[in-house]
Simulated assay, not measured.
Amino acid sequence: MATCPVRFEFQCEKEKFTATHNIPRSLVTADPSQSQNAQYVKTFMDTVQPILKEHEPAARAASSTKCGICGSPTAKILLTPMSWLHIVADPFINVLANAVCSKASCEMTTRQQIQDLMAVASNQDDSVRPGNGGVNVTKTTELLPCKVCGKMEKTSRCARCRVVAYCGKEHQKQDWPAHKQVCKSLAR
């Protein structure tokens, strides 16, 4: 399989760092419709997840020790990849690192803030993006795993809050007792 070196830019609270990894060349494409292709998304996530896991300790060290929402001690780091692989001349993946505590409400609020930020980035005029070569940018969305099983394929977001995803009705119903407590407060 042909590969291509791609820069991963980790945006953490204390500092930023960069790593370069070879990824399948098929992921670097100027075709904006590919980001909607289920096989492309699966290949992207299968490729990116181990890289994020590898750099999670460094991202944790470069992030705050306090939850960005409530100030409680950090329980985990959310790593959200934003693909800029459509910029074929200089492809990169921006990774947002956010410290969160163990409260579901803080994680969900943080995820909503990430979605808002991604929406702003998607709607920016291409002229303000360095190195894009005039390529049209498609809408950027956070790819979420099923909150119950972690599966990435064919997940759907909660229709009310849009912050969590499930692989089917069964897992959505299973998680509802825990999710309903914060869902209404996050609904737009």
Rank of each mutant, 00 (worst) to 15 (best):
F44I: 06
P24D: 04
L27V: 07
P50L: 13
A30C: 09
H55T: 03
T43Q: 07
S33I: 08
S33P: 10
Q49H: 06
T43W: 04
S35M: 14
M45P: 04
L27S: 01
H55Y: 12
I51W: 04
T43S: 07
A38R: 14
S26V: 09
F44M: 11
H55V: 01
Q34E: 03
P24M: 05
T43Y: 07
Y40S: 00
Q39T: 08
V48P: 05
I23A: 07
P57H: 14
V48C: 01
H55G: 00
S35C: 13
T43N: 02
I51H: 05
T47N: 01
Q34W: 08
K42Q: 06
I23S: 03
Q49T: 11
D46R: 13
V48W: 02
H55Q: 09
S33N: 10
P32T: 15
S35Q: 11
S26I: 06
Q36T: 02
S33W: 12
N37M: 15
P32N: 12
I51A: 03
Q39W: 03
I23R: 04
K42M: 03
K42E: 00
V48S: 01
M45D: 05
S35N: 13
H55S: 06
I51M: 01
M45T: 08
S33C: 15
Q36A: 10
P24L: 09
T43V: 00
S26H: 11
S33H: 10
S35R: 12
N37C: 14
V28T: 01
A30R: 14
P32W: 10
V41F: 08
L52C: 02
L27P: 02
D46Y: 04
S26F: 13
Q36P: 08
E54C: 10
T47M: 00
T47H: 02
E56I: 15
R25F: 12
Q36C: 10
P50W: 05
S35T: 11
L52S: 03
P24V: 07
D31Y: 07
P57N: 03
S35I: 15
L27M: 10
Q39D: 07
L52F: 06
P57Y: 09
E54G: 00
P57G: 09
S26Y: 06
E56C: 14
N37F: 13
L52V: 01
L52R: 04
L27A: 06
A38W: 12
S33Q: 13
A30P: 08
P57I: 07
P32E: 13
A38T: 02
S26L: 13
Q34I: 00
S26P: 08
R25I: 09
Q36I: 09
L52W: 01
K42C: 00
P32M: 14
P24N: 05
I51D: 00
N37S: 10
K53Y: 10
D46Q: 06
Q39G: 08
P32Y: 11
Q36W: 10
K42D: 06
P32S: 12
A30V: 14
R25M: 11
V28R: 00
L27F: 06
